[in-house]
């Protein structure tokens, strides 16, 4: 505690952000107050603007500044393919590969019963509406390869059993450029289980 209410409140609020512990929160607060004072009104205005303008895309659940996000509005995307991810950061990661041109659905989390996160917390009704739309051909389940991500993919797969669309799961295995000796056993085991025929 610094002893000045305004500083302590700033530190306390920053600490509530992911990845920011007590020392980081204190460091950021002092940096803003001592050296980056000009950033403070800009940050405040940006926070207020984002809070007022950003919502969830009605179609894919990603963050958007309109009812539909840019990807869902685009006529250059293949709306017949849907990639399901856990977070907006996953969308950015897949977009950065440049090899996917379909739509997304962003769950904003994963099923984790031991943390009290069940299907109702993921707003799966919006996902049910999305997969019921006409002309959907394939759904790619790209949740993380963790126990929770796998369980989420399995649950979503169950929801789509009656929809008549092709459902696939992203491949798992050794990283490109990696050496088998240094790959953990779980990853290597899954790489062997999920092996595929050698291509010409």
């Amino acid at each position: 505690m610094f002893g000045i209410a305004a500083v302590d409140e700033l530190v306390s609020l920053l600490r509530r952000l992911p990845g920011i512990g007590p020392r980081s929160a204190q460091r950021i607060s002092f940096e803003l107050l001592v050296r980056k004072r000009e950033l403070m009104p800009l940050l405040a205005a940006a926070l207020l603007r984002a809070n007022g303008e950003i919502r969830h895309c009605q179609r894919c659940n990603n963050l958007a500044d309109a009812d539909l996000c840019a990807i869902c509005r685009s006529d250059r995307r293949d709306h017949g393919v849907l990639c399901v991810v856990e977070s907006p950061a996953d969308v950015l990661a897949i977009e950065a590969t440049g090899i996917y041109n379909g739509d997304y659905f962003v769950l904003m989390g994963h099923l984790s019963p031991l943390d009290g996160i069940g299907p109702e917390a993921l707003h799966l009704e919006r996902f049910a509406e999305r997969i019921a739309l006409a002309d959907l051909r394939e759904v790619i389940l790209a949740t993380n390869p963790t126990v929770e991500g796998e369980a989420t993919a399995h649950f979503l797969g169950g929801m789509m059993r009656r929809e008549g669309v092709a459902v696939s799961r992203i491949a798992r295995g050794v990283p490109v450029g990696g050496e088998l000796e240094y790959v953990d056993r779980g990853t290597l085991g899954r790489a062997l289980t999920g092996r595929r025929a050698l291509e010409d």
Partner: peptide, 17 residues
């Protein structure tokens, strides 16, 4: 890690939980 790698994908993951 030790022992055989067990597969907890799919239904097995729900049972593990």
């Amino acid at each position: 890690e030790q022992g055989e790698v067990l597969d907890f994908t799919g239904m097995n993951g729900l049972i593990l939980f």
